[in-house]
Structures are given as C-alpha cells and as structure tokens.
C-alpha cells in the first residue's frame, strides 16, 4: 500500500531482527503498520488494534509488547524482534501439540512463548497459563498452546 509522502515524516533508526535499519514514517504511525506495510514483514498480525488480543506481539528490548500500541518513533534505538526472527526448528514443540489452528493469533503466541523460554524465572511466581494470558486464541481452547509451551520448556503436561 502506498503512503502519502509528507513533510512531517520522521526518521527512526532501530535494530530489526539483528539488522540496523532506518524508516521514514508519519509521527502517528504504529509499529505494527511500519512492519507490515512499510517493511512488508507481514508475519506480525493485527487482531484487535487496541492491545487486547496479543496477535501483534513483538519483542522490544527483550520484552513482549503489542506492536499496535507502540508508535514507531518509540522504537528509536530499540532492538525489535519479530516472528520472522524465529527459527523453524524452535516451533516444533508447538506444532506437535496442536498449538496452531487458524494461525491468526499464532505469531503472537510464538513471540510470547519465545520470551518465556528466555525468562524461565517467571515460572517461579506464575503459571504458564498466566504468562500466556496476553494472547487470545479462539480456536484451540489453549490446551494445545499450554502443552506446547510446557514441552518447549521441558516441563510435564498441564495435568
């Protein structure tokens, strides 16, 4: 999709999946749209546009955020990781437990799961179900997701 060229556009440098880039965007543009429509990285999906569903989750400086709520200018100097950075081999546990059905929430689910894998200490105080509650899924009923995350963490099943 084309963006109207405008005098008000600003330059925002940030690191995307390990590469340093600079984008020129409207001051009000959302990080989600910059990724999807500017950079053609459509792996990150829009579900609700108001930070409720988590489908657009990306990791920003190591923390999962809803990219629909992040103005792109706030990414200045940040390290952004999107679903495109995820290695195919690392999603196998989620594949075998049926963690994806329609696939629309899935990239966000995977990004939250990747964060959890790097932050296992959160499991000292929270359950997997609590830590994955920021990602709405309408297909699986969550067992496939919870079992897949637990399997990736090397934990037993949810039973």
């Amino acid at each position: 999709m084309t963006m109207p060229a405008d005098q008000t556009q600003i330059e925002v440098p940030f690191t995307l999946n390990g590469s340093e880039i600079v984008v020129r965007v409207e001051p009000s543009e959302r990080l989600l749209d910059t990724l999807r429509y500017h950079l053609a990285m459509t792996g990150t999906k829009e579900g609700c546009g108001e930070g409720e569903c988590g489908a657009c989750t990306v990791n920003m400086n190591g923390l999962p955020v809803n990219s629909c709520l992040v103005p792109t200018y706030q990414a200045r100097g940040a390290e952004i990781e999107t679903i495109e950075s995820v290695q195919h081999g690392s999603v196998h546990p989620l594949h075998s437990t049926g963690a994806t059905q329609c696939g629309a929430c899935t990239p966000g689910v995977v990004m939250s799961a990747m964060w959890l894998l790097k932050n296992r200490d959160k499991l000292d105080t929270h359950t997997v179900r609590e830590l994955m509650a920021g990602n709405l899924c309408r297909c699986t009923g969550y067992d496939g997701i919870v079992n897949g995350v637990e399997s990736a963490l090397g934990l037993g099943s949810d039973e």
Partner: peptide, 18 residues
C-alpha cells in the same frame, strides 16, 4: 501433523491483509 502448521507458526502464512 497439520500440513500448513509450520507456515502458520512462523508467520509465513499470507492472509488477505498480508
């Protein structure tokens, strides 16, 4: 396994908005 599962898990699946 779900045939299009890997494509969905890696965000490669192209929905109409993509």
């Amino acid at each position: 396994l779900r045939t299009e599962g890997l494509s969905k898990l890696t965000g490669a699946e192209r929905f109409v908005d993509d």
